[in-house]
């Protein structure tokens, strides 16, 4: 599966548009991470526990989007976008969406 955030894939032509695919996940913060983050708020710096949590959640959202695309029989997803929203106290929603397509490699694609 080729996954890009451009509208086209260089070296490929889009044969068929299968439609919008999406994936989301809502994650709650971990209490232990909150304590560590509270300490970090004193001296500043990266909240690596939260970075990890968001990265993991985003990967999950992308995974779900990929599953949908596979079910549609697509071999690529183009024009991917990500959004994040605050649903309720202490929880974050990660959402990924894109267009599932079937692409063919152009004969002149590789020089």
């Amino acid at each position: 599966m080729i996954v890009v955030n451009t509208e086209t894939i260089p070296g490929y032509t889009i044969r068929e548009v299968k439609g919008l695919v999406q994936g989301n996940t809502i994650r709650a913060k971990h209490f232990g991470r909150d304590i560590a983050a509270g300490l970090k708020n004193l001296v500043g710096g990266e909240l690596s526990g939260y970075t990890e949590l968001l990265t993991e959640a985003r990967r999950e959202a992308v995974e779900r989007m990929l599953t949908q695309a596979e079910q549609l029989g697509a071999n690529a997803i183009v024009n991917i976008r990500f959004t994040t929203s605050a649903v309720t106290q202490g929880a974050a929603e990660l959402y990924a969406y894109g267009t599932a397509v079937i692409v063919d490699q152009e004969p002149s694609g590789v020089s």
């Binding site: 080729i2 996954v3 710096g45 909240l47 939260y50 968001l54 985003r58």
Partner: peptide, 27 residues
């Protein structure tokens, strides 16, 4: 959206980077 010479690309893939960062108490 498209850089130079798109016809001479071997492959394309999504890449990403993420960070959560806090400011300090004084600031």
């Amino acid at each position: 959206k498209t850089g130079a010479a798109p016809e001479r690309v071997r492959s394309a893939a999504l890449v990403s980077g993420e960070v959560v960062i806090a400011t300090d108490y004084f600031k």
